[in-house]
Simulated assay, not measured.
Amino acid sequence: MRRPVVVGVDGSEASLRAAEWAADEAALCELPLRIVYASLWERYEGTDLAEDLGEPPDAVRGHDIVGTAARRAERRRPDLRVSTDVLPEEAAHALVREGRRASLLVVGTRGRGGLAEFLLGSVSLAVAGHADCPVVVLRGSHDNQATHAVRGRVVVGVGEGADDTAVVRFAAEEAQRRGVPLAAVRAWRVPAHESAESTPATGEPARTYERRAAEALDAALADVPPEVQVHRHTVEGHARGVLEAASREADLLVVGTRRHRGQYGLQLGRVTLAVLHHAACPVAVFRHT
């Protein structure tokens, strides 16, 4: 049985746009779309959703919300198989459980103007930190669509671990479906205690660290299919700043995060957390096993 693309909706415009994006993604992957509303969403996000709709909290109806999202998805992709469900439980818990049977989870941001537009809701962060499948958080100007390239590339951040090959493979598949190049980015820095030892004449140890970054890129990209056009970028600087800058020219930014056994709470590293809050495009979080 094919695992669906699952999108969480809450009735906000951001979540309905996420449903449209998820419909495009499901069509790209030739998978069904499942739209889910968790009826205890307000416990995480407060009562502002009901106020935005001009109704008291107890009048917000989950079936109306998923119905609206389904109609928007079906108008966008008439041939797509769409199912809906209303779950009487907390949103983050429900979506993480849905992720065990999903190919991909999609969630929107919850910002409503000003500084809030740059921050994520607690549900999005919890899902990105705990779901077993890849999670896409809809950030930035994604134009409600996954199929038509706006900036024309998928960007993947390559870290230091050998298991980054799985992250790169996922990013390469996304680039191949869209018919756009894959930009693989590896940030590097000279440690402060070593930078003082380098001189303009030799460029050491800077060249050493840049070479190591290039070698890490080559290793991570070894299994990328030859039909995917790959651009390699080694950039000096903090990884979070480098990836945030790269997101301004991407249709999708893919980052990896590792599972920390025995650790409770959010399981996102500082780099992943930073790009989830500040990236200019949708962010796919791929969890290492």
Rank of each mutant, 00 (worst) to 15 (best):
Arg3Lys: 14
Val6Asn: 10
Val7Glu: 07
Gly8Trp: 04
Gly11Ala: 07
Arg17Glu: 14
Arg17Ser: 10
Ala18Arg: 06
Ala19Lys: 04
Ala19Cys: 04
Ala23Thr: 14
Glu25Met: 07
Ala26Asn: 11
Ala27Ile: 03
Leu28Val: 09
Leu28Met: 13
Glu30Ile: 04
Glu30Met: 10
Glu30Arg: 15
Leu31Thr: 11
Leu40Met: 10
Glu42Asp: 13
Gly46Tyr: 04
Thr47Asp: 11
Ala50Val: 04
Leu53Ile: 01
Gly54Pro: 01
Pro56Lys: 06
Arg61Thr: 02
Asp64Cys: 03
Gly67Phe: 01
Thr68Pro: 01
Arg75Gly: 08
Arg76Val: 08
Arg77Asn: 08
Pro78Phe: 09
Pro78Thr: 10
Arg81Pro: 04
Ser83Gln: 13
Ser83Val: 12
Leu87Arg: 15
Glu89Ile: 00
Glu98Asn: 06
Arg100Trp: 11
Arg101Ala: 04
Arg101Lys: 03
Ser103Tyr: 03
Val106Thr: 08
Val107Trp: 01
Gly108His: 05
Arg110Ala: 10
Arg110Thr: 11
Arg112Leu: 00
Gly113Pro: 02
Gly114His: 06
Gly114Thr: 05
Leu115Thr: 14
Leu115His: 06
Phe118Thr: 15
Leu120Cys: 07
Gly121Ser: 10
Gly121Pro: 07
Ala128Asp: 11
Gly129Asp: 04
Gly129Phe: 03
Cys133Pro: 10
Val135Ser: 10
Leu138Thr: 07
His142Gly: 07
His142Trp: 14
Asp143Glu: 14
Asp143Asn: 12
His148Ser: 12
His148Leu: 13
Arg153His: 13
Val154Arg: 11
Val154Thr: 10
Val156Arg: 07
Val158Lys: 11
Ala162Gly: 11
Ala162Cys: 00
Ala166Pro: 02
Phe170Pro: 02
Glu174Asp: 09
Glu174Thr: 04
Arg177Asp: 07
Gly179Ile: 07
Leu182Trp: 09
Ala187His: 09
Trp188His: 03
His193Met: 03
Glu197Arg: 08
Glu197Ala: 15
Gly203Met: 05
Ala206Ile: 01
Glu210Asn: 07
Arg211Asp: 14
Arg211Met: 01
Ala214Tyr: 05
Ala214Glu: 14
Ala214Asp: 13
Glu215Pro: 02
Leu221Lys: 12
Val224Gln: 09
Pro226Gly: 13
Pro226Val: 13
Pro226Arg: 15
Gln229Pro: 01
Gln229Ser: 14
His231Cys: 02
His231Ile: 12
Arg232Val: 09
Thr234Cys: 14
Gly237Ile: 00
His238Trp: 04
Ala239Ile: 02
Ser247Val: 01
Ala250Arg: 00
Asp251Gly: 05
Leu252Cys: 05
Val254Ser: 06
Val255Gly: 03
Arg258Met: 05
Arg258Gly: 05
Arg259Val: 12
His260Glu: 08
Leu266Glu: 05
Gln267Asp: 11
Leu268Ser: 15
Gly269Asp: 11
Val275Phe: 12
Val285Gly: 12
Val285Ser: 10
His288Gly: 14
